[in-house]
Simulated assay, not measured.
Amino acid sequence: MVAQREVSAWRPSVPGVVEVFHAHFTEYAYPMHVHDAWTLLIVDAGAVRYDLDRHEHGTPEGAVSLLPPHIPHNGSPVTPYGFRKRVLYLDLSRLDETYIGPAVDTPELVDPVLRRRVGQLHTVLAHPGDELEAESRLTLIGDRLRGHLRPGPAEDSALDSAGPSAGAGLSADRPLARRLRELLDERLLEGVTLQEAARLVHAHPTHLVRAFSGAYGIPPHQYLMSRRVERARRLLLEGRTPGDVAAETGFYDQSHLNRHFKRLVGVAPGRYRLSSR
């Protein structure tokens, strides 16, 4: 078998994310090394074995691995077919050093909900322009990770549903949700980061996302994108080109508009424009 070493790495514009790293290795084995960031790892194919703090570990199917900063570890494929992995390196603003000990004791988190959310976040991070969604998802992933690393069950997230029951079981702070909705309406074109929004409305980012989702049934990023698509529809029906519309409705570029427009309307912007009479 020919040895495979395929990697893709980038640094997104999302606070707390040091690096995104995707790799496919067959024969390569990592020597002992350390990071100054948290390593949040999911394996999509194959399996990895590694030593952490002189104890051997593996990557169970469907699990999420969380390796703490400053603790030496290595890594090697379990089978000749190697492994495919996706990694987020997170700085200490997302998880502070108080969680290092629990993560050393239990680096493998068998949590299907967390695993799905981490995969969804990787998908979002691959597309520039969706930073608010990425930040929102990462904030709730961090909240769930802390739930695993301290006593008590991890909480569910309203991001996992988009209907009227989203955020069920959470006490919706409607005045707070309304303030965020007004801020999103004001910043429809330029957008706003989750950290900035939390500062402006005086709320913790996690609580802010939960309150909005509980009150309105959709998370803040989905509300913002639906408003932008709504404005884009009006401009397209006036005969404007998709490229111009993307620039005038707050999208990163035309492909960013295409992706969200097709998801919400069912057809691409160009086809929607041509359907106008």
Rank of each mutant, 00 (worst) to 15 (best):
L264Q: 15
R84T: 15
R277P: 15
L189N: 06
G58E: 12
D143S: 15
V7H: 01
Y216S: 09
L88M: 13
Q222Y: 01
G266I: 13
E19F: 00
V17T: 05
G82K: 05
G163V: 01
H122T: 07
Y89T: 04
R187T: 14
T39N: 14
I100T: 10
E61N: 03
Y28V: 11
Q222N: 01
H127W: 06
I100C: 07
R240G: 02
R234T: 14
G16K: 07
V17I: 14
T98Q: 15
E155K: 04
E182T: 09
H24L: 04
A166V: 08
A162F: 04
A268R: 12
E238A: 12
R210G: 13
P151T: 05
S65N: 12
A177H: 06
R240H: 13
R146T: 11
L236N: 05
L90C: 13
P269W: 02
E27Y: 01
L109W: 09
A103R: 11
E190H: 04
R263F: 09
A166R: 09
P68Q: 04
L132S: 07
P12L: 00
H148P: 03
R117H: 12
G243R: 11
L109D: 08
L200C: 05
H256W: 07
L208P: 04
E6Q: 10
L125Y: 10
T39A: 15
L114V: 11
V20K: 01
Y28K: 13
R86A: 14
V78N: 03
R86D: 09
D53A: 15
E186W: 02
H260I: 06
P107H: 09
R199V: 06
G101V: 11
N74M: 08
R231T: 09
V78L: 13
I100L: 08
P60E: 07
G270Q: 13
K85A: 14
R234Y: 09
D36L: 13
P219G: 15
G152Y: 02
L149F: 15
G169Q: 05
A232V: 01
E186H: 09
L66Y: 03
V48S: 04
A215F: 00
A166P: 06
H202E: 14
A3M: 06
G142V: 12
P151F: 03
V18S: 08
F83C: 02
I218E: 15
E230M: 07
D130P: 00
R210M: 08
Y28L: 10
Y30S: 14
P68G: 06
F251P: 06
L132A: 05
S161Q: 08
H127P: 00
A158C: 11
E238T: 05
Y81F: 13
T123W: 05
H127Q: 12
R277T: 13
T206E: 13
L200P: 02
P205H: 06
L194K: 05
F21Y: 15
S275Y: 13
L170Y: 15
E155C: 00
L224G: 00
H55P: 00
P69T: 11
L235D: 01
L159P: 01
S255K: 11
S275R: 14
P220C: 10
P68A: 08
D53P: 02
L52R: 08
S93Q: 15
D185K: 08
V209D: 02
P242E: 03
R210S: 04
G152H: 03
P205N: 07
A215Q: 10
R263H: 14
L257H: 05
E61G: 10
